[in-house]
Structure formats: C-alpha cells, structure tokens
C-alpha cells in the first residue's frame, strides 16, 4: 500500500464512521463535536488534494467560526442536553428509503458518467489533452505560491490563466454561448461582490433576528396565544 492510499484510508474511514455516528446519536452536543472531527478530517483531505488554502480556510471558518457558533446556540437553547426528540416510525422508514434510493440513483449516475467509468483522468482525456494534463500534474506536484495568488487575483478579474477548453466529462455538443463579447480577463469579481453584499445582509439580518426582545409586545404574548 502506498503512502497516499494509507493516508487516505486513515482519514476517510474515521470521517465515514463519524458521519454515521452524527446521524444516529441523540446527544446534540456530541453530534456537534463529531461534526468538528469530520470537518477537520475533510480539511486534511484537502491538504492531500493539494488545496492548502481552501483547507486552511475550512479550518478557520468552519472549525473556528461556524462550529463555535453552533455550540454557542446549543448551549443557549438546550436546557437539558439529554432531552431526546424521537421521530415517528413512519418518518424513520421513509428517511431510510429515501436515502437508499438517492444513494442508488447517484451511484448509477456516477457509474455511467464518463469521468468515473474511465477510472481516473488519463483515460477520459483525449490524446491531445492528456499531454496537457501531465503538464498540469507537474504543476500540481510542486506546491507553488502562484496557486494562491491565482485564487486571489481571479476574485478581482485579473486572471488570464483560466483554461478555455471544454471540461472533460461534458457531452460533445456542450458549448458556452460564444455570442458574448470575447474577454481576455475572466474572473470571479461578480460572485465576490455578490457574496460581500450577501454577507452584509446576513450580518444585519442575523443581528436583528437574534437580538434579545425586551419590549412589551413580546412579553405579553404567551406561548398559548401563539399556538392558535
């Protein structure tokens, strides 16, 4: 067994097992903690896949941000952590059935797709592009600084390195609409700006929703009133 395969199984098997434990545990804090380890393991897989910046972002935002928030919310809302909320047997059966069908469907789709049935990249690519992929592999193999600056500059529409050939795995006739004016500098400025505005809206919205309501109106409304 090669080192990378060992490492993959060393990370992947705990992730899979922990994901299953998250599903079947009824202890909500423990579910959050197992989610923490799942996320850290996924970040390790990103390191294995040469995406160091994304891995560090995952550690920073998911682990240091979202999960802390999640546990905060659990502590604020759960007076009794052992308070189990069981679902009905019908729901249980339905959920298992749905997930089985979903898994089966995706597996069949994956099995028939050109990307996976060709057992990796080399066989799916045509001869002309396989040479290019080897070049890309060489570029991948050395963790270069350019990769990070490429991500950064492409967010500001400054990148000209985006490959223009169609992606492997897509059908032959699939083409981008070429009637648009040709652009030399393509990037992700629009999603970047959209996300910034989106985050601002979320910031205001979340602060508005979660603020403690001390005004009289909400105090007078008892739970029995709202139930009707």
């Amino acid at each position: 067994m090669e080192l990378d395969e060992t490492l993959f199984y060393l990370i992947a098997i705990p992730i899979a097992v922990l994901a299953l434990i998250i599903v079947f545990t009824t202890h909500i804090v423990r579910a959050a903690i197992w989610l923490l380890f799942t996320l850290i393991g996924t970040a390790f897989l990103y390191f294995l896949l040469d995406a160091a910046f994304v891995a560090a972002s995952q550690l920073m935002i998911y682990v240091g941000g979202i999960l802390v928030l999640l546990i905060f919310a659990i502590m604020l809302t759960n007076q009794n952590p052992l308070n189990r909320l069981p679902i009905s047997k019908l729901d249980r059966g339905f959920s298992i059935l749905f997930v089985l069908f979903l898994g089966l469907g995706i597996s069949v789709a994956l099995y028939n797709s050109p990307v996976i049935s060709g057992n990796g990249q080399n066989k799916t690519n045509t001869d002309s592009s396989s040479k290019k992929s080897e070049d890309q592999d060489e570029k991948n193999s050395s963790l270069s600084n350019d990769q990070i600056s490429e991500i950064g500059t492409s967010f500001f529409d400054l990148n000209s390195k985006i490959p223009s050939q169609p992606m492997p795995g897509f059908p032959e006739g699939f083409k981008v609409n070429r009637k648009l004016p040709p652009r030399t500098n393509q990037g992700y400025l629009l999603p970047f700006e959209l996300i910034s505005i989106h985050l601002l809206v979320i910031l205001i919205g979340a602060a508005y929703l979660a603020r403690a309501k001390y005004n009289k109106n909400t105090e007078n409304v008892s739970p029995s009133d709202t139930m009707e």
Partner: peptide
Amino acid sequence: LPIAAFFMLSILSSEVFGVIL
C-alpha cells in the same frame, strides 16, 4: 507550506474547542 502564516492562525483558532468542551 506556502500558506504557513494563515495555517498557523487557523489551527490555533481551533484550540478554543478544547476550552469550550
């Protein structure tokens, strides 16, 4: 690692989990 500075901050920020736990 080419992003060592960022990695150090991110991994040290997950230290808080031990304390919360």
